[in-house]
Design a protein around this nucleic acid. Structure first.
Lengths: 330, 330
DNA sequence: ATGTGATGCGTAAACGTTTGCGTTAAGAGC
DNA sequence: GCTCTTAACGCAAACGTTTACGCATCACAT
């Protein structure tokens, strides 16, 4: 920076102001400085910047997993948006809740970032508190946590869209495969989807609590379907927590020799790429868009602007494919 | 830090040395300092640290895409390993080659990171040069680039394993679906796989150059299969650049009413999760392990240790499933 | 001509570390 | 008991920014 200043014939302070677009610099010199800085391929040292009261230009993204379709797409959306605003993305992957706890207790990103985007986390009260007392802006995706701005879908509505479809085409015995994480915890999204499931059934006077709870994933889906097939009152349709679970359910059905959709309708949530391959009816949620929306909120907040909305809820909609049909009895 | 020093009754310098485990501090005072620091939940400011000659504790991971199975798993492996070494991951996603160019020209991470892990990039000469003149340690995954340490699989060998299997079970007319990126560029991995394909055929005296080139992805696979089916000498088996491409090929075959494997054998590379679902024979490559290995190399290098190997090549092996069988004619 | 308020810019003091060099004290060798 | 070495520690100068403050300059109204 001193270099740029010398080259331009102004003081370091002026360069600093010019580069950050602060007022107090004439347009002429700003342009001159900008040009020289570009020539030298100069980039401000975030360290020095932060050290003297500026921003780090970094935002942390905290996810439970990265190697899962949903999270990697969210991440892609975030990255794209933040990159456009010249912010860097620091990735934190906290699989186990013990890691999460120690993370929020030690807060290793205390002075490392300007903002934190937490994806789909079941934030506990103390964790929220720690985040609040930390001096960063926080945005959550896929959950509402305290007063933090959030981006999500309406999970209950999505479930109602799925179950509503099954009811509309004539199903009366409908099961659900719900999920827990590897540690047996139910997450907010799942709870909302279960609520939507029961809500839709109750509205139609059909509620009979036909659910199976399994660990999230394809194998979970396989087992979930087995559980439902073990019941005395085997349902004619199954609403799955997500497409990957539904794919597992389909595998069990194939092995069981039960034709889909003739013998069993299956519906999921997500519109995962394999949903198209498996010809699976589902409720699509915009994933990358959620990440992008969260990114925009962060950019606004860091720029001192109030974001357009503090609680963004993106729409979901039914995608009808071949895994659902009228029940055979009708 | 000043606080800790005052509390302990030593100078700031001593605290700094003690906390970083440098010599020049007696064990007694080190322990005392450590205790006080823990009590105050003190963590060094990475900014200040870096500013005065220390390390940033950050490493950049540069990938072309994140929302793809391969890259997100690589990333997961890297993240896990670096997290264990207390290093932070900064994510850079450069989809288009124009972004890549400007990235390597402007080098926005000049003072931001200690190391760079470049994943599967076709690094051009100038880009390598820029990286070299920058003062960071570099590790590449899925390619060899200059003298940089690298982690990868032997793509040519993997191709030979796949094609060798097809030959061994009796196929003599074997096609390949190779891929290019959205901009029409062939990547190093693809070129090596093509070389392995031809090499294996040549060794068996079978080479007849039956390849189709398509953009990477499921749709590419669909089109690639269509192209091969358009030939006068339709092959009896197809080796696909990767499993996702193979899945596309399978879709086309299903639509065409050609039974797999009776009418056509299909094999891929990766052992993508959907390969199991699609019952696809494939050559498995360890993905997360490649990320982890690269992470370890970085950790070693930053720690001033020479890594165990400068060019890690991880093994691949055949996974036989139901999409391959002897050709019908035999 | 004088005062007033912006505007454009420079000066210098932070920010919280690391590190080269200097000082002190303790132990080793004679 | 004296020097010599070495270990343990303090001093102070960087590192590259941001920002409060101050000083000109200039336009404009008085």
């Amino acid at each position: 920076m001193a270099d740029v200043a010398r080259r331009t014939g102004v003081s370091i302070a002026t360069v600093s102001r010019a580069l950050r677009g602060e007022k107090g610099v004439s347009e002429a010199t700003r342009l001159r400085i900008q040009r020289i800085a570009d020539e030298l391929a100069y980039v401000v040292s975030p360290e020095a910047s932060k050290l003297s009261g500026g921003a780090t230009g970094r935002v942390a993204v905290v996810v439970p997993w990265i190697d899962a379709w949903f999270y990697s797409r969210i991440l892609a959306g975030i990255e794209h948006e933040l990159r456009a605003a010249d912010l860097d993305v620091m990735l934190y992957c906290l699989e186990e809740s013990s890691q999460r706890e120690s993370f929020f207790e030690r807060l290793p990103l205390r002075r490392k970032v300007d903002a934190v985007i937490a994806v789909a986390f079941p934030l506990t009260g103390p964790e929220r508190a720690r985040l609040e007392e930390m001096d960063v802006t926080v945005v959550v995706i896929g959950a509402h946590a305290g007063d933090f701005p959030s981006v999500r879908i309406d999970d209950e509505l999505a479930a109602r869209q799925a179950v509503g479809h099954l009811i509309r085409i004539g199903h009366t015995r409908i099961g659900m495969i719900r999920t827990v994480d590897p540690e047996g915890q139910s997450w907010e999204g799942d709870i909302a989807r279960v609520a939507g499931f029961h809500g839709a059934l109750a509205d139609a006077g059909l509620d009979d609590d036909c659910t199976a709870t399994v660990p999230w994933g394809i194998e979970g889906g396989e087992r979930g379907m087995e559980l439902l097939l073990s019941r005395a009152d085997v349902p004619t349709a199954v609403f799955c927590h997500s497409d990957e679970v539904a794919v597992g359910a389909l595998r069990t059905l194939r092995r069981a020799g039960i034709p889909v959709p003739a013998g069993m309708s299956v519906i999921g949530i997500d519109d995962h790429p394999t949903a198209e391959l498996a010809d699976l009816t589902t409720v699509r949620q915009p994933v990358a868009e959620q990440g992008a929306a969260a990114g925009r909120v962060v950019v606004d907040l860091l720029g001192g602007r109030e974001p357009a909305e503090r609680a963004v809820v993106l729409p979901t909609h039914l995608v009808v494919r071949g895994s659902t049909a009228r029940p055979a009895e009708l």
